[in-house]
């Protein structure tokens, strides 16, 4: 169930006679995307420990970001770099309940270029129109970060660029053929993960 209201799948799961999979609820959580992201990280990096992960864009309403940060906080030696405009910073409860509670080292910055050389993974997100009640705020913030080949000059050779897609303009199409662009492989992983999840819930071996 994909739903614009936060908590809708939980409500449905209390009444439904079949398993409900949360396929994204408002700006809250997106667990199937997180499974997809974990599979992608494992396939691309071969590990979950010892990674510096940059999250860039809308960290306030970005539900995929919230879920992935929570998932990665289970692993060892994870460093989190939070890159966003001030208005779209990660909610303080996630910083407190997830990052601080698990002793995860993190920094917050508005400058992507400055932290680029440190990253093993760069998780880009789009600024979503539907999360804003005010159109002016959306227009002002939507182009805050656009990833271009120029910005990747200082990046690691084995950087893994991820994005939950669809993209608007936050990743230049000139990067699509760069070997570090993993977002199309990520989409395919998403198909496999959702197939596996549905089969598991249906009890199919």
């Amino acid at each position: 169930m994909r739903h614009p209201k936060e908590g809708a799948p939980l409500v449905a799961s209390k009444k439904a006679s079949v398993p409900i999979i949360n396929a994204g609820d408002g700006g809250h959580n997106h667990p199937t995307q997180t499974l997809t992201d974990l599979l992608t990280i494992h396939r691309e990096k071969g590990r979950f420990n010892d990674l510096t992960i940059g999250f860039c864009g809308d960290l306030k309403f970005g539900r995929t970001v919230h879920s992935l940060i929570e998932a990665m906080s289970r692993y060892k030696n994870i460093k989190v770099v939070l890159i966003s405009p001030v208005e779209l910073k990660l909610p303080s409860y996630i910083k407190h309940d997830v990052l601080k509670a698990n002793n995860i080292e993190y920094i917050q910055t508005t400058n992507l270029e400055e932290v680029m050389p440190t990253l093993d993974i760069l998780y880009m997100t789009r600024v979503q129109r539907e999360r804003f009640f005010n159109e002016d705020d959306y227009v002002r913030l939507k182009d805050s970060y656009i990833l271009t080949p120029q910005k990747l000059l200082t990046a690691k050779e084995d950087l893994c660029i991820m994005h939950p897609l669809p993209r608007v303009n936050e990743i230049s199409t000139a990067i699509d053929d760069d070997k570090r662009a993993c977002y199309f492989k990520q989409v395919l992983n998403g198909k496999f993960i959702r197939m596996a999840l549905i089969l598991k819930l249906l009890g199919v071996e």
Binding site: P4, E6, G7, G27, D97
Partner: peptide
């Protein structure tokens, strides 16, 4: 939270859990 399901589903109980 205006995005919460409780903002539109009027019959839902507002349940809060102690997290800290």
């Amino acid at each position: 939270n205006p995005r919460c399901i409780t903002s539109t589903e009027q019959e839902l109980d507002h349940v809060f859990k102690l997290t800290d």
